[in-house]
Structures are given as C-alpha cells and as structure tokens.
C-alpha cells in the first residue's frame, strides 16, 4: 500500500459537515454515486467544457475517509507521490490529487489543468455546519403504495423497488435502499 504523507493544514482537523454539492466554483452538477463512494461532479473549464472530475466523500469518522482515500487511488495507472500542503493526507501527480482532511476525502483527476488548484478550491469549500448528520428518509405505507419522504434532502435515490408510471414518491414494491443526500454530500440510508 502506498504510504500517505501526513501534512499540516490550516484547515481545522476533526469532523466536517462536508463540501457543498452545488456552488463550488468550477464544478458542474453533482452525481450522487453511493453512500460508500460519495458524490462526484465534473470540473469545468471557463467555457463550460468538462476537463475532469472530482469525487468527494464525507465519513462519519476519519477512519472512513482514510479507507475511502485508499480505494480512490486504485484506479490510477501511474504511481502517485506524496503532496505537501493539502489537507491531512495527500497524494498525486500533475493531473491527479487525492486528499483527506479530517473526515472528508476527495479525488481530483483532470485531463487539462492543475489538479492541485482544484484540490485547494475543494479544501477551501469544506464546511463544518450543519454539524448533525442528516436523518434517514422514511418510508410509510399509504394505500397501495409505499411513500418516501426525506424533507430537506438535496437528492433522493433508491435501489430496487418499483414505482408505477408517473408516481414520483410512491413505490408499489419496496426498494432495497432509499438514500437521502444533504447539501454537503452526506448520505443517510433507509433499508426495510
């Protein structure tokens, strides 16, 4: 396993709320992957064209973020080297950087431009509020349907189940998972 360099950071160590899934300069619309993998967003050039991608994960503990970072760099075919001055841990190359700061980890890969610059933007975008982890969505039976509710969720998704055509929140067959994401990229999961 590639050793990680522990580096000092001006940002506070400890538990963060995450990175806003919308509104970070240079990033496009988020794609919510899974609770284990986090979310991603394209990195856009000045003219709006994609020049790479960021993947962001918020763990409930630092260890979660460390394990995520270990896996995030699996999909890089060139060796990465430690990078100084980015979060608590960082590895990278000119086009790739993988960073952990407290319980937040992210991975940046670009086919154009400096990954380090995007990494710094993401570090600066980390927020600590709201501190409380979002509540899991609820699923309640109403008539023939199982209705999903997740007030305040930035994104809702489900695995499995069946929805009648045109039914936005009602399932005729229970899903295996319902996942609610909050505005800082934290996922809460309902399971039957």
């Amino acid at each position: 396993m590639i050793p990680f360099l522990l580096s000092a950071t001006a940002l506070a160590a400890g538990l963060h709320a995450g990175v806003p899934v919308r509104g970070v300069p240079g990033l496009g619309e988020p794609d919510f992957l899974s609770p284990e993998l986090g979310w991603s967003a394209p990195v856009l050039s000045a003219d709006g064209q994609p020049r790479g991608v960021v993947r962001v994960f918020v763990g409930k503990a630092e260890l979660d973020a460390q394990l995520w970072l270990r896996d995030a760099i699996l999909g890089v075919q060139v060796p990465l080297v430690p990078v100084l001055g980015l979060g608590d841990q960082a590895l990278g190359s000119s086009s790739v950087v993988a960073v952990r700061d407290g319980n937040v980890s992210f991975f940046v890969v670009l086919h154009e431009g400096s990954a380090r610059e995007v990494g710094l933007t993401l570090l600066n975008a980390i927020v600590d509020q709201p501190a409380a982890w979002p509540a899991a969505p609820t699923v309640q039976q109403q008539g023939d349907l199982w209705m999903v509710e997740a007030p305040g969720a930035a994104h809702l998704d489900a695995v499995g189940g069946r929805r009648p055509l045109g039914e936005a929140y009602g399932f005729s067959r229970l899903p295996e998972q319902v996942i609610a994401w909050d505005s800082t990229g934290r996922a809460s999961v309902w399971t039957p």
């Binding site: 896996d71 999909g75 890089v76 086009s95 890969v109």
Partner: peptide, 10 residues
Amino acid sequence: RSGASYYMSY
C-alpha cells in the same frame, strides 16, 4: 497524463 479513471470507482 496519469492513466486515471474518470467514471469508475473502487
């Protein structure tokens, strides 16, 4: 540049 993945996560 790096042979990095843009769409696959492990």
